[in-house]
Simulated scan of single mutants.
Amino acid sequence: MADAGRPLRVVVGEDDVLLREGIARILIEAGFDVVARCGDADDLLRRSLAHRPDVVVTDVQMPPQRQDDGVRAALELRRREPGIGVLILSQFCEPAYVLDLVGQRPEGVGYLLKERVGDLKVFVDAVHRVAAGGSALDPEVVSRMLGRSRRDDPLQVLSPREQLVLAAMAEGRSNLGIAKTLYTSQASVEKHVTAIFRKLSLAPADTEHRRVQAVLTYLHAGARAR
């Protein structure tokens, strides 16, 4: 997490040089300090460990193998430096990558489709959220998970509205952000969140911890339905 008074430090991983420079320029103009730009996964991991930025923004498919090298580098980075946030940019919607990154700790993880980079507000907000230890999941990924169902799906106890609230929580939105997205009051959202905690049998504890546990339940339910 960034020290007060200094810009958030970012490492960018993208093998397409034009896109890499474009992402870096967006971040710099938004007030971030881009400390490294990497064209392959090995260099991304090496320089991220050296610079220890607040967040790493990386593509999925990168050299040397051009498969899921970027994700594997991100997983290794989270293992070695759990305090560094990771925002994955992908051309395709693949919830499995989200589950791999989240594990049992969704803090500091983001997954966006590359097309979202063009929406500067969404992209920049996602980088901020992940750097601060929050989550930022692409709405399309969340919708795909929400659309899955199984007989033993723990989310079936939730009403459709509560499922929408939980999906927005998974995207990393605050109660106020959820209220604006669903065009409802913040008090109404708070009631839904309380109901979600109760129905998912999340024992009274720190509110943020219960939000994390609720999101984990949501993500793993989506994974089991694949």
Rank of each mutant, 00 (worst) to 15 (best):
A2I: 12
P7N: 08
P7H: 13
R9Y: 08
V10D: 08
E14I: 11
D15F: 11
D15I: 08
V17T: 14
L18F: 13
L19V: 11
A24M: 01
E29H: 15
D33S: 10
V35L: 00
D40I: 12
D42S: 15
S48A: 14
S48Y: 00
S48E: 02
V56T: 06
V57T: 11
D59C: 06
D59R: 13
M62V: 02
P63Y: 03
Q65L: 02
Q65Y: 03
D68E: 13
V71W: 14
R72Q: 10
L75E: 00
L75N: 00
I88E: 03
L89E: 02
Q91N: 15
F92E: 03
P95C: 03
L99V: 14
G103E: 04
R105Y: 13
R105L: 08
R105Q: 13
P106D: 02
G108M: 12
G108P: 09
K114Y: 03
G118T: 12
K121H: 13
V122F: 13
H128F: 07
R129F: 05
A132Y: 09
A132W: 08
A132M: 05
G134A: 15
G134I: 13
L137R: 14
D138G: 05
S143N: 10
S143M: 02
R144S: 12
R144W: 05
L146K: 09
G147K: 10
G147T: 12
G147M: 13
R151W: 15
D153E: 07
V157N: 06
L158T: 08
P160H: 06
A170W: 01
N175E: 04
L176K: 10
L176M: 12
G177P: 00
Q186N: 10
S188I: 00
K191T: 06
V193L: 09
V193Q: 07
R198I: 03
K199V: 06
T207Y: 08
T207S: 01
E208N: 13
E208C: 05
H209Q: 15
R210P: 02
L219E: 05
H220F: 12
H220I: 10
A223D: 01
